[in-house]
Write a protein that binds this DNA or RNA. Structure first.
Length: 475
RNA sequence: GGGGUCGUGGGGUAGCCUGGACUAUCCUAUUGCGUUCGGGACGCAGUGACCUGAGUUCGAAUCUCAGCGACCCCA
């Protein structure tokens, strides 16, 4: 069949699809003239707003939102050795004020530990001040040398949610890391994005952490995207920044810390994991337009149809639904394509025939059509769509995960997805896996059903006691 | 980190090698008018571009150098 119009590249050609969808669905404009910096279109920004509103809701239960400065004095930034090593290659420096050189150079935060922790040292006095759980949503700057990509690898991360907590004991901090993982699981469950939770190998943990728990998702091309991390910082930073508290016995004690973050990669994951050949598929939770109403306007009955459509829109708005009434002078079909591209979960059509019959045509993003008689049927429909989107994503993710018992199997698995295999924890064995399979050992202690299915088999390389590791190619 | 390809209206291309008013083409770009309107309408008339800087030249989208930017491949 002949294509009538310029088709979106198929999602099977993921890179091309991704670039095109960002522009056509008006998410990011990539034409800003600085490498690695991109502009949010209003529609994309609305997705961001809805997504981060949910993230805030989840955090606000027992965190407080705060805001720290963008600029960090060099003497603070340079205090923690491991941390510096991890970031110094990527830091932008402000060296001048006007024409004069600054006495103290200022780093644009690549992350905010070194901005926040000197203040924490002032704020934390007593065990009664703990735990302290703050977060902020800010932009950060990293001079990326790898290939930059909108929402995925940026020189200005525009939407970095970073939480920083302080605790009395190592165990409490460890429990907070688990709590962070739980919160992120809830968040991604709500976005319908299936996640893999594992512990990053020691050589890949956050610079200045005891350990790092990572949240990854699987993109349509089988590569993984890290979409969240939680770090146990132990006392690395509290030693450096002198964050101490007075315990019940009146003794000064070093505090234990955690930090955990999510960036706009969460939006990249929503777009990529759910999208299809027709365009975006947005979960109602984050869709800027949850329901679009297309009036079917024909000649004489135009006013009658418009009035009915406006009433319908008002009724939906009253139910708290984000609704758009599309009154543009276009044929209905063109509007259908437009809103499908933009991922609108549910479309309602109202025309003369529907008015006569007392019904409304409802079509979901998967083109399932039904007739409804009342606006009260809309919310259940949206709930159903949210569930369908999650189920599709879950099926797609499962299809990309292979449980492997040998190097050859891993090699095949990582060509189109990720492998789960047993690993003893030894660097030598992981080096061998990576060299043989052209993929990375992303994490150990993988959680969830796939790890359980693997069972207690020995390391794929040496046969010693091993645990479930995640192996794949990553963004 | 290494290599490659490339930069032309809003988007996609041709023209460049062989310099000459350069210009052209397609689209879900855009303006106006009219006819249309239950799955991407049509007619007519318009708008709109050669990445930036330097150089070569009588003359540069075209040649040279640099910068900026984009994409692809390999490590």
């Amino acid at each position: 069949m002949e294509e009538k119009t310029d088709a979106l590249p198929p999602i099977a050609d993921f890179s091309a699809w991704y670039n095109e969808i960002l522009r056509r669905a008006e998410i990011m404009d990539v034409r800003y003239p600085v490498k690695g910096l991109y502009v949010w279109y209003p529609f994309g920004f609305a997705i961001r707003k809805n997504t981060y509103n949910r993230l805030r809701e989840i955090l606000d239960v027992d965190h407080q939102e705060t805001l720290f400065p963008l600029l960090i004095p060099d003497y603070e930034f340079m205090k923690e050795a491991e941390h510096i090593k991890g970031f110094e290659e990527e830091v932008y420096w402000v060296t001048h004020g006007g024409l004069s050189e600054l006495d103290v150079k200022l780093a644009l935060r690549p992350t905010s530990e070194t901005a926040i922790y000197p203040m924490y040292a002032l704020w934390v006095r007593s065990h009664a001040d703990l735990p302290l759980k703050l977060y902020q949503i800010v932009n950060t700057f990293r001079y990326e040398t790898k290939h930059t990509r909108p929402l995925i690898r940026l020189r200005e991360i525009t939407s970095f949610k970073e939480a920083h907590t302080v605790h009395c004991t190592w165990e409490e901090a460890a429990a907070q890391v688990e709590e962070a993982v739980r919160l992120y699981s809830v968040f991604y469950h709500d976005l319908g994005v299936p996640i893999l939770i594992s512990r990053r190998p020691d050589w890949d943990k956050f610079p200045g952490a005891d350990y790092t728990i990572a949240v990854d998702c699987i993109m349509p091309d089988g590569k993984t995207l890290q979409i969240g991390t939680a770090h146990h910082l132990g006392t690395h930073f509290s030693k450096t920044y002198n964050i101490t508290y007075e315990d019940t016995a009146g003794e000064q004690q070093l505090a234990y810390q955690t930090c955990y973050g999510i960036s706009e990669r969460c939006i990249a994951s929503v777009i990529s994991v759910h999208g299809d050949d027709t365009g975006l598929v947005l979960p109602p939770l984050v869709a800027p337009v949850q329901v679009v109403i297309i009036p079917i306007i024909i000649g004489k009955r135009r006013d009658e149809v418009m009035a009915a459509a406006e009433t319908l829109a008002a009724d939906l708005k009253a139910l708290g639904i984000r609704v758009e009434l599309d009154t543009r002078d276009m044929r209905p079909g063109a509007k259908y394509y437009h809103w499908e591209l933009h991922g609108v979960p549910l479309r309602l059509e109202i025309g003369p025939r529907d008015i006569d019959a007392g019904t409304i045509v409802a079509v979901d993003r998967f083109k399932e059509k039904c007739q409804i008689r009342s606006v009260n049927e809309v919310i259940p429909l949206l709930d159903e769509i949210q569930a369908t989107i999650s189920r599709h994503a879950e099926d797609a993710a499962s299809g990309k995960i292979t449980i492997c018992s040998g190097i050859e199997e891993i090699k095949v698995a990582v060509e189109s997805g990720v492998a789960v295999a047993s690993w003893c924890g030894d660097r030598g064995c992981s080096d061998l896996i990576e060299a043989e399979t052209d993929a990375s050992l992303l994490g150990s202690d993988l959680r969830g059903p796939h790890a359980e299915k693997l069972g207690g088999v020995g390391c794929v390389v040496c046969g010693k006691v091993g645990k479930a590791a995640l192996i794949g190619r990553s963004y």
